[in-house]
């Protein structure tokens, strides 16, 4: 476990990193960024917590199995969303301009950016963001676990 200064800073930064990451994921169809980048930002928060507090504490809060399940759910959601438009083609945008969820038509040209647009793109952004969060998080946890094992055997 790191010193109190580092832990206080981590406590302060962790919600900000989470909010920023989810903002990037949620606004992937309006602003630069998207699922991959936002998921990587959220995984940085996991890494920050894992560094500030020791792995021994963190492994009870963030479970590897749950991260793996999150990753699988993200990839499955991505593929299922793509498959639902199979009547036209794989990866057909079946929600755009329908007036349903995320189906608001968008005017051509410069506009303020409406969140309720772009059809399947926000769903896919969320799916990929969840998948990247789970994948990178579980890689971090695996590495920390392995470092722990090696240092225990060495000493």
């Amino acid at each position: 476990m790191m010193s109190k200064i580092v832990r206080t800073q981590a406590n302060f930064l962790y919600p900000l990193i989470m909010i920023f990451g989810f903002y990037i994921v949620a606004h992937g169809h309006l602003t630069p960024g998207g699922g991959f980048q936002g998921g990587a930002v959220i995984a940085t928060g996991v890494a920050l917590i894992a560094v500030a507090y020791s792995y021994k504490n963190v492994k009870t809060w963030i479970k590897k199995t749950r991260l793996t399940a999150t990753e699988a759910i993200g990839l499955l959601t991505f593929i299922i969303t793509a498959l639902l438009g199979i009547s036209r083609s794989f990866f057909y945008n079946w929600l755009a301009n329908t007036g349903l969820l995320f189906g608001q038509p968008v005017p051509y040209g410069i506009n303020p950016g409406y969140l309720n647009t772009a059809g399947t793109l926000p769903i896919m952004n969320f799916a990929v963001g969840i998948e990247v969060l789970g994948g990178l998080g579980v890689i971090i946890m695996y590495y920390l676990h392995y470092i722990k094992e090696v240092s225990k055997n060495a000493v």
Binding site: G28, H29, L30, T31, P32, G34, N93, A96, N97, F102, G103, Q104, P105, V106, Y108, N111, G113, T117, A118, G119, L121, N125
Partner: peptide, 10 residues
């Protein structure tokens, strides 16, 4: 028009 997304890259 086709996808409804402002971000063309996405």
């Amino acid at each position: 028009n086709q996808t409804g997304a402002n971000n063309i890259v996405t």
